[in-house]
Every structure is written in structure tokens, then in C-alpha cells.
Amino acid sequence: MLHFLDVFSGYGKTEILKDVTFSVDPGAFVGIIGPNGSGKSTLLRTATKILEPFAGEVYLRKDKLKEISLKELSRIAAVVPQDMLFMFPFKVLDVVLMGRIPYINRLGFESKEDLRIAFESLERVDAIGLKDRFIDELSGGERQRVVIAKALAQKPKILFLDEPTTHLDISHQVEIFSLLKKLNKETGLTVVTILHDLNLASLYCDELILLSEGRIKKQGTPNDVLDYKTIEEVYKTRVIVKENPITSCPHIFLVKLQP
């Protein structure tokens, strides 16, 4: 689905990602983890054509990313940012319909089909009841569901998310990730998400990519990646890793630093 081959990337002249190679299979649920400044967002921006790699090649499905036009890309990949800032108070349905922009022609208003897809997307995220509300009246969790619905309206094959639950409380964190997992399982949507919370990553992701200083430190299943030695080395803090008694996923416990 997505394939990075010896990719170097960054901003202006500053190189952040160094020699990154990985593959994401269709239908996978992949988490990108790593400390602040390790290159997670740079990786996401390179994968979505916001940044052009300095060297190396990114492939999306069978094609080179650089040969895919922005418009084509917007029909294959959708992005959910950490927190979408709405400058104007759009209605929820209007926001979701903006996900149809890649499909509607110039001057055109949305067709019945576009409207149907928007409703369907709202239903998928369980937010159909919000359709006539104004986006600025919603709570953080509701708003993030709407933004995901907008992304789904793009009918993507792959969904990128940049820490989608950073501003949410634990119940909404679980709600959003369960929703993503359901979409992933039911529709085969490939999900690539940046995560700060290692335990959420462990619970929901099939596969993790751990970045450290712009390089891939380790990749594999949560069990492979989340061992205490690796975590301590990359994050430079003490942790204890134990098995979650219910899910048997690895669970990371923080250790208080001695003053």
C-alpha cells in the first residue's frame, strides 16, 4: 500500500528523516511512535506529499508518489490532523461534504451521490445526529469524529492520522481508536497513525514503527517493539513493561525520576 525506500526528507535544507525504509500492507493498522522531534510528522508529511523527499522514493500502491497528482492523491489518501482549526462556523454536514471536493467538478454543487456518501460517512462515525449542528459548538470528541467523517467522505484507501486523540480524555481516546479499528476491520481501510501514547499504540496497532532521531529504530508487532530496553534507550527515561492482563498486549509503566 505504502512503501518508503531509502527516504531522506525534511524542511528547507534541514534533514530530519534519514534513510527510512518500510512498507505498510493493505488493510494494516500501523502506529508511528517516537519521542518529540524524532520525525513522525515529517514522515506523515512526506507520505502525503506536503514535503518532497530529498532522496529516496515513496510508493503509494504501485505508483511513485511524485507521479500522483494532488487531486488523485486526495482520492486515495485522507488525513486527519491533531486538531483541525475551523476559521468559519461551517455546519457539520458542510464540513463532511468538503471531503467530496476531490470528486466534484468546477462550479458544481454536490450531487445526490455526494450527499449519500456524506451521510454514510457520518453514520460510520456515529455522528449522524450532529449533521445540522455548527462545528464550533461541538465538543473535542464530537469534532474529531466529524473530521474523520470528512476524511471518510474522500473514499480513501489509506487514512493518515496525526495524533488524533491528543486533546481528548481517555474515554474519547478509546472511542476514537475503537472506531478506527472498526473501520479498519470492516472496510479494509489502511490506517497509519502517529501516536504519543504507547499504551494506546500497543492496544490498537497491528504494527509499530519506532522512530528515533529521524531513523527507524525498530519496527514490528507491539510485542517486538515495546520492550523496556528499546523504550528506555529511545525515550531516555526509565520504564517498566508488563503484560496487560486482559489483552495481553505489552503495557508501559512510567517510573518516577528520583529528585
Binding site: I50, K71, A78, P81, F86, M87
Partner: peptide, 12 residues
């Protein structure tokens, strides 16, 4: 009006 990166993600 959703933001510049968001507009790019919509193929603009």
C-alpha cells in the same frame, strides 16, 4: 478555510 495543509490534502 480549513487550513492550507487540509486544502492540499483535498487536492487543491
Amino acid at each position: 478555510s480549513l487550513g492550507e495543509e487540509e486544502a492540499l490534502h483535498l487536492g487543491v
